[in-house]
């Protein structure tokens, strides 16, 4: 359960690198500054990749959690 209310949910389950990051970028591009994307992935590389992606792009990783085999990220568009 989460106390964050996402504005958009993107399910990248089953997709391999680099698609989760690419779809995340496209989804965040479509948001307004301050809005939140909930991104779900099953790619085991998605945690380091999402961390690297926010570090490079300047968006904010608010929260990260796992649920079974799923990695769940809450990303706030920062600019």
């Amino acid at each position: 359960m989460s106390d964050i209310n996402p504005d958009l949910i993107l399910d990248n389950s089953g997709l391999a690198c680099p698609m989760p990051i690419i779809k995340t970028k496209k989804a965040v591009d479509g948001l307004q500054v301050g809005q939140i994307l909930k991104m779900i992935a099953t790619d085991p590389g998605s945690l380091p990749d999402v961390q690297a992606w926010v570090s490079k792009t300047g968006h904010e990783l608010l929260k990260y959690e796992t649920e079974g085999n799923k990695f769940i990220f809450y990303i706030r568009k920062a600019k």
């Binding site: 690198c17 680099p18 990051i21 690419i22 995340t24 970028k25 690297a52 992606w53 490079k56 792009t57």
Partner: peptide
């Protein structure tokens, strides 16, 4: 292409 698309996604 993996690195090119990832680069673009990293806003490079």
């Amino acid at each position: 292409f993996v690195l090119a698309t990832a680069g673009a996604a990293m806003e490079m």
